[in-house]
Amino acid sequence: MIVQEKVPGGKLLCVEAEFSSGRITRIRITGDFFLHPEETIDGIEKALVGTKADGVAAKVSEVLASNGAQLIGASPEDIERLVKRAME
C-alpha cells in the first residue's frame, strides 16, 4: 500500500509498506524531503523491517542519531503516521 502526504510546513513524503502480523516486512520511503547524509535512508528502511507501526518514529530517530544524520522537511513522527495509514 502506498500513501503520501504533503507534510504541513515540510515536503512531500510517500511511504510504501507491506506488513505481516503487525510488523513491517518491506518499506520504501520516497519524496522530495532532504536527509543528510542521503545514504542513511537505506539504514532507516532496513532497520524498520520487523518493526511494529507504533515503534517507527523511535526506530527512525535511533538510526538518525547513530548516523549523525539530519532529516529536513519531514520528521520521524510523520513517517510513523504514514506507516500507520499504509497499514489501514
Binding site: 520504501r28 520516497t30 519524496g31 522530495d32 524531503f33 536527509l35 542521503e38
Partner: peptide, 9 residues
C-alpha cells in the same frame, strides 16, 4: 529528480 524520489513515479 531528488535523491529520494521514485524515478518511475
Amino acid at each position: 529528480i531528488g535523491y529520494f524520489q521514485s524515478l518511475e513515479r
